[in-house]
Design a protein around this nucleic acid. Structure first.
Lengths: 205, 205
DNA sequence: TGTACATCAGTGAACGCGCGTTCACTGATGTAC
DNA sequence: TGTACATCAGTGAACGCGCGTTCACTGATGTAC
């Protein structure tokens, strides 16, 4: 049985694994722990035991690394959204999508920190652009699906979309900053559920 | 008539004005235009026509400058909140507070960018801590005031507070990132009003 | 009112550091013949 | 199957730059006597 997952090329003497992959993971970890500021290509290379010139083979510059990280984040989020849309209809889809957004932000803070930052990542990048647009498309679809099932029938669809996006995005940001955890003593996942349920319920009555 | 607003000390030969003040303003402008990354004390000093060692007389280090900027932001926001609380009752107070939050974030993006960033500003700083706590206190007070007037009477007060905070914070963040402006073609102030009105109305029915 | 002194907020030179970037190189792998 | 060659992803030395920080200094202002 041949191993089809093995890369076509490997330079076992220098670096055994997938340096590009490892650079992205290491960058995400540093961002999650200390923020974007301390991230440097040299430090990442050193951490991975590789020469500081090696990353240049995979990322033109630091901005390219951040852009790839952001695109990866949108991709991940998009897959979670697709999953939610496949298994749920109406308000359940909205609920599942909102919880997926929050779960993603909590599980991948390094990615999330870079995803809405035109000053950090290259928003004109084609990969990033398309994956970011897909995210918003899911949101509008979810609202429409819920409205088709009678939820918030009288409200404007785009207004609802902005509202829901703002809620989950805002909670994710405040939680990441520690602004909310300082005030309440609730597990993150529970807070997420209460907030999402509450905003959906507000339009159900 | 003596000028009581004049500073007790001035060194007209070296720097005519209030360097501390000007450093804060210049930093806010740079952050608003290019983000936090490019901010350096040396560059700010150069921009103000002052030696690069001069800022050290006012801020121990870069972190201290960011912390002061964040505290100033919370102070400004707190005054806007007090204003809103003075002139409004019930849901009107909530509405005025939400719009003040969004107006502040849009008018002072440099301050806002630094206000919920434990990796950038020193959250343990006493001035920052107290002014940030005051902001949250207003939020809870506003929810209680609205509930006293019959709004969302059956909902949990803290849950409502988190929801409202998340909405305005999320919209501010998404707008600053250009994520929403790309999707809709609405003036910012109008979008703010629609969103705030909508979320309050959702609990009025 | 004049003098001596303390303080404050600047200057400018010097330092070491980490950074991104460039460059000639090397050695393993894949491909053509 | 063997050989020659191209390619790819590393190395490590070198570079210039901007940064924060330190330091002895200076000159204007405020205060004590």
């Amino acid at each position: 049985v041949s191993d089809v997952t093995a890369p076509k090329r490997r330079n076992a003497t220098y670096y055994g694994g997938d340096l590009r992959r490892d650079l992205l993971d290491a960058a995400a970890a540093v961002i999650a722990a200390e923020g974007i500021g301390p991230v440097s290509l040299r430090a990442l290379a050193k951490q991975l035991g590789v020469s500081h010139a090696a990353p240049a083979n995979h990322f033109r510059d630091k901005r390219a690394l951040f852009t790839a990280l952001a695109a990866e984040g949108f991709d991940h989020l998009g897959r979670a959204f697709t999953e939610a849309a496949t298994h749920h209809e109406g308000t359940d889809r909205l609920r599942a999508g909102g919880l997926a957004y929050l779960a993603f932000a909590r599980a991948h803070p390094g990615h999330f920190a870079v995803m809405f930052r035109p000053d950090i990542a290259d928003e004109d990048d084609h990969t990033l652009q398309t994956s970011s647009d897909a995210t918003f498309a899911f949101l509008v679809d979810g609202v429409r699906s819920a409205q088709d099932h009678g939820w918030a029938a009288r409200a404007n669809a785009t207004d609802l979309a902005v509202l829901l996006w703002s809620v989950v995005h805002g909670l994710a940001g405040l939680s990441a900053a520690g602004a909310i955890d300082n005030q309440f003593d609730i597990p993150a996942a529970e807070l997420d559920q209460r907030l999402v349920d509450q905003v959906i319920a507000a339009y159900s009555g």
